[in-house]
Amino acid sequence: MPQQKPTISSSQLLILLLLARVMHTMIFRFDSFSSGVPVMAALLISTAVEAVICLPAVVYYSSGGKNLIGELGPLSRVAGFLYSFYFTVIAGGTAALFAEFLQREFYTSVTPVAAIILLAAASAYCAYMGIEGLARAGAVVFWSFIGLFAVMCIVNEGGFNWLNLRPLTSLDIKSIFSYSIESLSSSWWIPMLVILGEHLKSGAFKAAYGYLFAKLIIIETLVLLITIVLWRYIGVLGYPIYALGAYAKSDFIQRFDAINMLVWAINCALVLSLYVFISQKPAQNRKIGVIIFSALFASVAVYEFKRGLRYNEPWFLWFKLSGIFLLGILIPIAAIILKKRKERPARI
């Protein structure tokens, strides 16, 4: 059912971007954790930087731009494939990390390769349904996640230890810097905004800065909770948000781990669908496009998983950062310049 004129609201785009960010945080695995305060400080810094670097894309769409990639003229097809490549790798990394999470925590239920294949099939179908379906479903998934998180907090048996909030010292500057870079490398929401902006009815500014504000609140809250409830246990437990679920207990439901995973899996498939939707954009036929790019990201995921490569490792950090620089900053700036040039003769 591909739609003729798919449009989404700024709040729907905001939620989709948040879900992608939350997914990245969910599958982030800590092997060691000294203190949450530097992470919280780094988040603040990276958010401030993101607020500046997203300006070209926001300015383009706020000034009446409709198709940022299309502004590049003959280079638009090349640019389209660059975005496809970038998001195929990101999707592959996300799927590989989720498969690793399933293998570590739910090894009895599904093998990693089977999980990747199922995720690829589901995301191909969902991406084919179009951006409106994804955006509407995103709202349901987002509020389900919030609901589950609230329930887990209410029935959580973990105690708060405010002493875990160790004050910052000069020794933390190095870790703040590295965490900031790491957080900044997770800002592929800017290239996402560049592609999805053409489906926005209006309100690119609202979507971008609303996202930054909401992300800051949600991630800072998560880090705060992780710090005051789990602290050094994170290094042992691995996935901090998942570990928070392990502390949630009730008489009716013994443990929330599997229920937590259920919502994660839904979110993972939805976010992967979004990446596939972005990747297939240069394809002429959406049906073929989603099949090709789902197969591609599944292959990347299986390769990464088998070879033990993870996109949260240092070598990958530079790939993500350079992608954000090129696709999120340089291309939007070029599009604005070309748009201005096109408009100039018309004014005269």
Binding site: M1, Q3, L102, F106, T108, S109, V110, A114, A115, L118, L119, A122, Y125, C126, M129, G130, E132, G133, L134, A135, R136, A137, V140, V141, A258, I259, M261, L262, V263, A265, I266, A269, L270, S273
Partner: peptide
């Protein structure tokens, strides 16, 4: 066959299908 993961996949497909229906 694959536990809650399978139910999650079915749920998302049906949800997106319903949401894409106009």
């Amino acid at each position: 066959t694959v536990g809650f993961f399978g139910i999650a996949i079915v749920s998302l497909i049906i949800l997106v299908n319903a949401c894409a229906t106009d």
